[in-house]
Simulated scan of single mutants.
Amino acid sequence: MNRHAKSLAGLLPLLALLPLSGCASRPDYTLRPPASSEWVTVAVKLPAETEVLPLDVLYRSETCRRKVYDPTTESHVSTERGLNPMQMDLSPADGNGVRQIRIAFDGGTKCGWTLSGIRVGIQLAKTSVLANGKDIIPANYVFDFDDEGYSNAFGKGKPNFVSGDLMFKTEFFPMVITNNMFIETYAQLFAGNTKYEKWNRYYRLSGTKNIRIEPIVYSKKVVKLESPRNRKDSPGMTVLYPDGTTEKIRGIIPDYTKLLSMK
């Protein structure tokens, strides 16, 4: 199971343990957008040997709230907006290779669900040669539509504030990571260290009705990282760049600027 699936799987049991309050009966987790709802369209056009995962879509409700542990109160219980996470499939590709979906801002029902966040994951296709026999890690774009959204989606700071319709043409390099200690090999798409704003793909949106993602993947420019084979080897990952040069690094973040010079 990849990290994308694990994150969703870890969230669902939590929701079951924290029942919602504020609704006269069991909350309605289905969506029934009213005719007055506005919509956002997410469109994805991918190069060969890549695939898009079902979108993670998060709605929240002010009406159907959930109980949470709160050490600051006498009862140790308080409430916060209810959560309604779901997955949505994009349409089959059209004649131009574009897959898309329309997502309602107002989810309707007695809970009054409102769109809080969307996560778009792309990855090397399971059928691709590079992914064969490896665990696949998706590269995510995360979009918040309120001040909670996915709450620090990448674990590194706040989202970038942007407005209006958006087009992304991120330049990705296939990256293969071999961990000799745990005998594991991962394959992913790499586009820079997301802790830096210029490469971060986490956004807080305002007035956005269209999101289009058309990544560029340099499929022949593979970067490989390998951990030490034994304790006698020097610490750190060895990076093998597409031009044949190598270097030692701490962590698993190669030099993206160097990679861009090789495209």
Score class of each variant (00 low, 15 high):
M1L: 13
M1V: 13
R3W: 03
S7D: 15
G10V: 08
L14G: 10
L14W: 11
L17F: 05
L18T: 14
S21G: 11
C23F: 02
P27H: 05
D28I: 01
R32S: 11
A35P: 02
S36L: 04
S37E: 12
S37A: 14
L46F: 09
P47G: 12
L53A: 11
P54S: 06
V57R: 02
S61E: 00
R66P: 00
V77G: 06
T79H: 02
T79G: 03
N84C: 08
A93C: 11
D94C: 13
R99D: 11
Q100V: 00
I103F: 05
K110G: 09
G112K: 03
T114L: 09
R119C: 02
Q123I: 00
L124F: 04
A125S: 15
S128M: 05
G133I: 08
G149Q: 02
G149H: 01
G149W: 01
Y150F: 14
Y150D: 02
A153C: 13
K158A: 15
P159F: 05
G164P: 03
M167E: 09
F172N: 06
F172Y: 12
F173N: 03
T178Y: 08
N180T: 04
Y186W: 05
A187R: 02
L189I: 09
T194S: 13
K195M: 10
W199F: 15
R204M: 15
G207N: 12
K209T: 11
I211W: 01
R212G: 06
K220H: 11
K224E: 11
K224D: 01
S227T: 14
R229W: 04
R229M: 11
R229S: 13
D233W: 14
T238L: 14
P242T: 10
K248S: 11
I249F: 13
I249C: 07
P254G: 08
T257Q: 09
S261W: 04
M262H: 12
